[in-house]
Amino acid sequence: TTYYDVLGVKPNATQEELKKAYRKLALKYHPDKNPNEGEKFKQISQAYEVLSDAKKRELYDKGGE
């Protein structure tokens, strides 16, 4: 599973699309609303952290993490 899959976006997604997808999923899986989905929330946050940063995203796209 790639970070793009976690957020449900395509690899060519814009920053705005990433932000929108992250917010939607973060609300859905937030531990306050969904106590059993803490791990999913962490995955979503990690994916967004990497993909929202241009340098980290470039490194990730080249095969790094």
Rank of each mutant, 00 (worst) to 15 (best):
E37P: 06
A26W: 15
K20L: 14
E58F: 07
Y60H: 04
S45G: 06
A54G: 07
D61T: 03
Y3A: 04
Y60R: 02
A26F: 12
T1Q: 11
K40E: 06
Q15W: 11
A54D: 09
Q15M: 15
Y3H: 07
I44T: 02
L7M: 08
K42A: 12
K33G: 08
S45T: 15
V9W: 00
R57Y: 03
F41P: 01
K19E: 15
K10M: 10
K10C: 13
E17R: 03
V6F: 07
Y48A: 01
D5Q: 10
A54T: 13
L7F: 03
G8F: 05
K20Q: 14
V6T: 07
Q46C: 10
G63T: 11
K28G: 05
G8H: 07
T1R: 14
S52Q: 08
L18C: 04
L51S: 00
Q46M: 14
F41S: 02
K19A: 12
L7K: 00
Y4E: 01
L7G: 00
V9P: 00
E17N: 04
K42S: 08
P31M: 07
L27G: 09
L25D: 01
L59G: 06
K33Y: 14
K42F: 08
I44F: 04
G8R: 05
P11H: 10
V9F: 00
L59T: 09
E37Q: 11
K55L: 13
V6N: 04
D53E: 04
K10D: 07
Y60M: 03
R57N: 03
Y4F: 03
Q46Y: 08
L27W: 15
A21D: 00
Y60W: 02
R57C: 03
K28R: 11
S45F: 12
A26M: 15
L25M: 09
G8L: 05
R23W: 14
N12R: 05
D53Y: 02
K62F: 06
K19R: 12
T14R: 04
V6I: 15
E37Y: 14
A54Y: 10
L25V: 03
G64F: 15
E65T: 11
Q46F: 07
N34L: 08
E58D: 09
E17H: 04
L59Y: 08
P31W: 05
L59Q: 15
K24D: 13
K10S: 11
K56E: 06
K33P: 04
A13P: 01
R57I: 03
K10I: 04
V6W: 12
P35V: 07
E37F: 12
Q43S: 07
T2E: 06
E65K: 04
E39K: 10
D32P: 13
S45V: 13
E16T: 08
S52K: 05
E65D: 09
V6K: 04
A26K: 11
D32I: 11
G38H: 15
Y4V: 01
K28N: 05
N34M: 08
L7N: 01
D61R: 01
G38F: 14
K20G: 10
N36V: 07
P31S: 08
E49G: 09
L59P: 03
Y4Q: 01
